[in-house]
Design a protein around this nucleic acid. Structure first.
Length: 877
RNA sequence: GCGCAGUUAGCUCAGCGGUAGAGCAUCCGCCUUACACGCGGAGGGCCAUAGGUUCGAAUCCUAUACUGCGCACCA
C-alpha cells in the first residue's frame, strides 16, 4: 500500500469536470501498450495460463459492427480471466489467404491473374476508378498478382489493428500471424505432410463438387441450398425390344449423360423392366434399367435417370455399380464436345445422336436445358408440357451459378471413416451455449463426402508435393513426392523436389509441381496450432495447446470448428480447445442479418467516435453467447450514460476519502462502524460472490445485468442516504462512510473493468492505482468478499431505510415538490426486526429526505410479515 | 421431412415452480453543494394458444401456431 497523496492529488483540479471519452480512450490505449499489460509471459506454467484461439478475421474489406460485437464479448471473458490472475495468451491472426483476397484485389485494381504470363518487375498497380468493365481488366502474372495481394492485405491489416486497439481488445500484439505468411504456410504444409504420413489424406480423380464461376473444387461445408424455380420435363424413354416409360426430370440437359435408369426394387410398375435396357430419346443411348432404393415411387413418375452427374446420389450409384462416365459438363460449365459413336457414349444411332448433340456443344448448362427441351418437343419425346416447380439447388456459398459434379484430381482428408471419433471429440468440448453442440453433431452425422482440400486457385498455400513425369511425358499422380518436413515451406512451382533440378520441370523423365493451393480452411483449421508453434517450437506448443477457449460464430461450426477438431485429433489426438464460445449475430431491426450494405453505412469507427468504445462494448456485453442481438443505438447511449455515471459517482466517493474525516490515513474495514455502511458492504459482497460463478460459465451478460443494477442502486439510494453524513457527520461517522464508499468504488471499477475498460482505468488511475499498487485496474485482482471479511452488516437496515425514503420521494413527486422540500411529519409502522434495523439509519434518512426530526414517529407492529407502512406529510416550505 | 432456439409492457430483453421485472420510449414533476450527459414519480402485460402435472405454473410436461436458424431431401 502506498500513500494516497500522489503528485496528481496536489493539482488544483484533481478530477476532470466532465468525462470526454473521445480524448481519454486513445490515450489509455497508448498507456496499455507502454505498460505491456496484455503481454503473455512464457515463463509462467500452463495451469496459470488462459489461452485463446482468436478467430482471424478475413482481411478482405472492412470490419463491421458484427465483428465489434463478438470480439468485444471475447475480450470481456479474457479480461476477467486476466483479473483472476491468469497469464492470458490472446493472439490475433489475419486470414488474408484465399478467394476473398483474390476477389478484392481483382476488383480494387481491375486485374486478372494469368499464370501463363511472365513476371513484370516494373508493373505498377492502378486502383480501378469508375465503372468496371471486364474487358478493361489487366492480365498480370501469378507473381505480380501475389505481390499485389500481399501489399493490399498488409495495409488492410494495419487498419484492422487500429480498430481493435481503439475498441480496447486486450490482445498481445506481439502474437500475430497471417494465414498466407511463411509461418502459416509452413504449418499448413507440415500438417499436410503429417496427415500424408499418417494416411489421413489421399488424392483421387473422382467427381467432385465444382464451381464453374471460380473454376475450382469446393468442399461440402462450403455449399448452401438456394431456392430456385425450375420445370419438370416428362421425357419419353424407349425400352429395347419394345415398350417405353416416362421420366420426370428438372435437368433434361443431362439426358446425353444418362448412364442408367432406376426404379424402386418393389415398384410393381417397373419390376418387369429390370435387366432390360432403356433407350434415351434424341441420343439413342442404351442404358441398363436397374433397381435402386434411392428411387421413390411417390416422386415424379417413380422412375428416374442416373446421369454423370446430377447430384451426389448419381455419383454414389455410378461408383457402386461401376458404370461408365459420360461427362458432358466441362470445368467452365459448358457442354463438352463428345462422340456418340464411341465409348462410353455408345449410341444405337451415332449419326443422329451426334447431330442432336452438335446443337448443345459449347452451351452453358442452362442454355442447353432449353435447347434440349425444344429438341425433345420437336421429336415428340415430351409426354406433357413442362410443369413449374420449386427446387433447392446447391451453390458454392460465394458463387452465382449452381454447382456441378466434375471429375478432377483432388486431395481429400478422410473424414467419413472417422465420423464416430470426430463426434466423440466434439463431445469433449464444452460448448457455450450448450445447444450449439447439436449443430456440430448434426453436421458430422450428415457428412457424405471426404473433405476436399485442394483448390484450383492462386493465392493460397501450395501443396508441398511434386509428381514424377514418365518418359512419355505423363504425370504419375500415384507416386507423389512429398517435401521433407524440415524443408517447409516450399513452393513446388519454383522449388525442386530432392534429386531433381529445375531443367527437369515438366520434361519427360522429370517432375511436375502440384499446381493447386489448399482450401483456406486447411490453414484456418490449424489456428490453435499456428499460434502455439506446433510446427516450429515444441516447447511453446506444449504450453499453449490445447487452448482454453475458441470464440467463434455459429454459422461456421460446420467449417472452422469442425475442421479444427478434425485436425487436432488427427495430429495430436486431442481436442483443440476445452471451451467453444459461440457468439450470436447482430441482426437489423427488421430481423434480418446485418447485411454488408447496411454495415457499410454504419462503420465501427464512426460509432466509436460518436458513442465511445465503452458504450459499444457495453452493448456487446449485454448479449449472451449464442444469442442474436438487434442492432439498437439506444443501447449505446445507455452504455455511455453508465460510463458517465461511473465517472461522477466515483469522483464524489473519492473526494470523501480526501476530506478531513480521513485525516490522510488509509481507510479500511475497521473504519466501517455505521450499521448502514456495513449493511451496504454486506450487500455488495453478495454481488461480488455471485459474479464469480457466472463468469466461470462465460455468462458475463448475466453478471453485467446485476452489477449494473447494483451500481445504479448504489448511486440512487445508498449514496443519497450517506451523502449528508459524509459532509457533516462526526469524524468517525464520516470516516465510516468514506471507507465504505472507497471500497465500493474500487469494487465496481473492477467488476465493470472487463466491460468498460476505459472509464474504469481512467478512474482507477485517480487514486486506486497508487493505493493498491496495481497500476492498471486490468491487472488488479477480481474483487472478493474476503476483502471485507471483517464487516458484517444487516441488509435489512438498508432495505428498510430505502423503503421509507421511497415513500418520501413518492409523496414529494405526487405533490410536485422538489426533493429538498421539507417533510413535516413522517410516521413509520413496521415489524420489530425492521424497526430495530431502521433505528441506526435514522439520521441518514432524515438528512436524505429533509425530514423534520420532531415530526418523526416509529410504531412497532406485531409481525415482520408486512412491509413497513409509511405516512408522509409535507411541510409548508 | 428431422432437429435447435425463441414467442413476457409500444421497442429491446431479464426472470425459468411461490403476489409480473428492468432499460428505452411515453407522460408528470424537480437545478438537490458527484452528475440536468442528472434526479424523483406515473401509466402501460390473459407472460403465443390449448390441454396436463402441482396446494400453487410465465416458469415443468404434451400438443398446436407463428418467427429465426441448422440438417436432410431435392426425379
Amino acid at each position: 500500500m502506498k500513500d494516497a497523496s500522489t503528485e496528481t492529488n496536489e493539482k488544483k483540479s484533481e478530477f476532470p469536470a466532465n468525462y470526454l471519452p473521445a480524448s481519454v480512450e486513445p490515450a489509455l490505449c497508448s498507456r496499455w501498450e507502454e505498460g505491456k499489460i496484455y503481454h503473455y509471459d512464457p515463463a509462467r506454467p500452463r495451469r496459470e495460463t488462459f489461452v485463446v484461439d482468436t478467430p482471424p478475421p478475413t482481411v478482405s474489406g472492412s470490419l463491421h459492427i458484427g465483428h465489434v460485437f463478438s470480439y468485444a464479448q471475447t475480450d470481456v471473458i479474457v479480461r476477467h480471466q486476466r483479473m483472476l490472475g491468469k497469464n492470458t495468451f490472446y493472439p490475433m491472426g489475419w486470414d488474408d489467404n484465399g478467394l476473398p483476397t483474390e476477389r478484392r484485389v481483382q476488383n480494387l485494381f481491375g486485374v486478372r491473374c494469368d499464370p501463363a504470363l511472365p513476371y513484370d518487375p516494373d508493373y505498377k498497380p492502378q486502383p480501378l476508378t469508375g465503372k468496371k468493365d471486364l474487358k478493361d481488366y489487366v492480365h498480370i502474372s501469378r507473381r505480380n498478382f501475389l505481390e499485389l495481394c500481399e501489399r493490399q492485405t498488409a495495409s488492410d491489416e494495419k487498419v484492422y489493428e487500429a480498430l481493435w486497439r481503439r475498441l480496447g481488445l486486450s490482445i498481445d500484439w506481439r502474437q500475430t500471424y497471417s494465414t498466407v505468411g511463411a509461418h502459416c504456410r509452413r504449418t499448413s504444409q507440415a500438417s499436410f505432410v503429417d496427415l500424408f504420413k499418417k494416411g489421413h489424406v489421399y488424392s483421387a480423380e473422382t467427381p467432385t463438387l465444382w464451381d464453374t464461376t471460380f473454376k475450382t473444387a469446393v468442399a461440402q461445408a462450403e455449399c448452401e441450398d438456394r431456392e430456385a424455380s425450375g420445370f419438370f420435363h416428362d421425357v419419353k424413354f424407349g425400352v429395347e425390344g419394345g415398350g417405353g416409360f416416362v421420366i420426370s426430370t428438372t435437368r433434361p440437359e443431362l439426358l446425353p449423360a444418362c448412364i442408367a435408369v432406376v426404379a424402386h426394387p418393389d415398384d410393381e410398375r417397373f419390376k418387369p423392366l429390370f435387366g432390360k435396357k432403356a433407350v434415351t430419346p434424341l441420343f439413342g443411348a442404351r442404358v441398363p434399367i436397374m433397381p435402386s432404393f434411392h428411387a421413390d415411387p411417390e416422386k415424379g413418375t417413380g422412375i428416374m435417370m442416373v446421369c454423370t452427374f446430377g447430384d451426389i446420389a448419381d455419383v454414389q450409384f455410378w461408383r457402386d455399380h461401376d458404370l461408365p462416365m459420360r461427362q458432358i459438363i466441362g470445368r467452365d460449365g459448358r457442354l463438352l464436345p463428345v462422340d456418340f459413336g464411341a465409348a462410353p457414349f455408345d449410341s444405337a444411332d451415332p449419326a443422329a445422336a451426334n447431330a442432336a448433340y452438335a446443337h448443345l456443344t459449347g452451351l452453358y448448362a442452362k442454355q442447353a436445358r432449353n435447347k434440349v427441351k425444344t429438341m425433345l418437343a420437336e421429336a415428340g419425346a415430351l409426354a406433357a408440357d413442362p410443369r413449374p416447380t420449386q427446387q433447392a439447388v446447391k451453390f458454392y456459398e460465394k458463387g452465382d451459378l449452381p454447382l456441378e459434379f466434375v471429375p478432377a484430381r483432388q486431395w481429400y482428408i478422410k473424414i467419413l471413416e472417422n465420423k464416430a471419433a470426430l463426434l466423440e471429440q466434439g463431445r469433449k468440448v464444452k460448448w457455450h451455449p450448450e445447444f450449439m453442440f447439436k449443430r456440430y453433431e448434426q453436421w458430422v452425422e450428415g457428412l457424405n463426402q471426404d473433405w476436399c482440400i485442394s483448390r484450383q486457385r492462386y493465392f493460397g498455400v501450395p501443396f508441398p508435393v511434386w509428381y514424377p513425369v514418365d518418359n512419355d511425358g505423363n504425370t504419375d499422380f500415384s507416386r507423389p513426392i512429398v517435401a521433407a518436413a524440415e524443408t517447409l515451406p516450399v513452393d513446388p512451382q519454383t522449388d525442386c523436389p530432392p534429386g531433381y533440378n529445375e531443367n527437369q520441370r515438366g520434361r519427360p523423365g522429370g517432375f511436375a509441381g502440384d499446381p493447386d493451393v489448399m482450401d483456406t480452411w486447411a490453414t484456418s483449421s490449424l489456428t490453435p496450432m499456428i499460434s502455439s508453434g506446433w510446427a516450429s517450437d515444441k516447447a511453446r506448443h506444449a504450453k499453449l495447446f490445447p487452448a482454453d477457449m475458441r470464440p467463434q460464430a455459429h454459422e461456421i461450426i460446420r467449417t472452422w470448428a469442425f475442421y479444427t477438431i478434425t485436425k487436432s485429433w488427427m495430429h495430436e489426438g486431442s481436442v483443440p480447445w476445452h471451451n467453444a464460445a459461440i457468439s450470436g449475430w447482430v441482426v437489423s431491426p427488421e430481423k434480418g442479418k446485418m447485411s454488408k450494405s447496411k454495415g457499410n453505412t454504419i462503420t465501427p469507427e464512426g460509432l466509436l467516435q460518436t458513442y465511445s468504445a465503452d458504450a459499444l462494448r457495453y452493448w456487446a456485453g449485454k448479449a449472451k453467447l449464442g444469442q442474436d442481438t438487434v442492432y439498437d443505438e439506444s443501447v449505446f447511449k445507455v452504455g455511455m450514460r453508465l460510463a458517465t455515471k461511473i465517472f461522477n459517482a466515483s469522483k464524489f466517493a473519492i473526494m470523501q476519502t480526501r476530506g478531513p474525516a480521513s485525516a490522510g490515513a488509509p481507510l479500511g474495514p475497521a473504519d466501517i462502524t455505521e450499521p448502514l455502511d456495513s449493511a451496504w458492504v454486506s450487500h455488495l459482497k453478495g454481488i461480488v460472490e455471485k459474479s464469480r460463478g457466472d463468469f466461470a460459465e462465460y455468462d458475463y451478460a448475466a453478471a453485467l445485468l446485476y452489477i449494473e443494477t447494483a451500481f445504479w442502486d448504489f448511486c440512487d439510494n445508498y449514496l443519497e442516504l450517506v451523502k449528508g453524513r459524509a459532509y457533516s457527520g462526526t469524524p468517525a461517522q464520516a470516516r465510516s462512510a468514506a471507507a465504505a464508499l472507497e471500497w465500493t468504488v474500487g469494487v465496481f471499477l473492477r467488476l465493470f473493468a472487463p466491460f468498460l475498460p476505459f472509464i474504469t482505468e481512467e478512474v482507477w488511475s485517480w487514486s486506486f492505482a497508487a493505493r493498491t499498487g496495481h497500476a492498471s485496474v486490468h491487472k488488479a485482482p477480481w474483487p472478493a468478499a474476503a476483502e471485507m471479511a471483517a464487516v458484517e452488516g444487516d441488509e435489512l437496515t438498508l432495505k428498510t431505510a430505502r423503503k421509507v425514503l421511497d415513500a418520501v420521494r413518492t409523496k414529494k413527486a405526487g405533490e410536485k415538490r422538489s426533493v429538498k422540500w421539507p417533510v413535516a411529519k413522517l410516521a413509520v409502522e413496521c415489524g420489530p426486526k425492521a424497526a430495530s434495523a431502521l433505528k441506526p439509519a435514522l439520521e441518514d434518512l432524515f438528512s436524505a429526505g429533509c425530514v423534520d426530526k420532531a415530526g418523526f414517529s416509529l410504531k412497532e407492529s406485531a409481525s415482520d410479515e408486512a412491509d413497513p407502512a409509511v405516512t408522509v406529510e409535507l411541510g409548508a416550505a
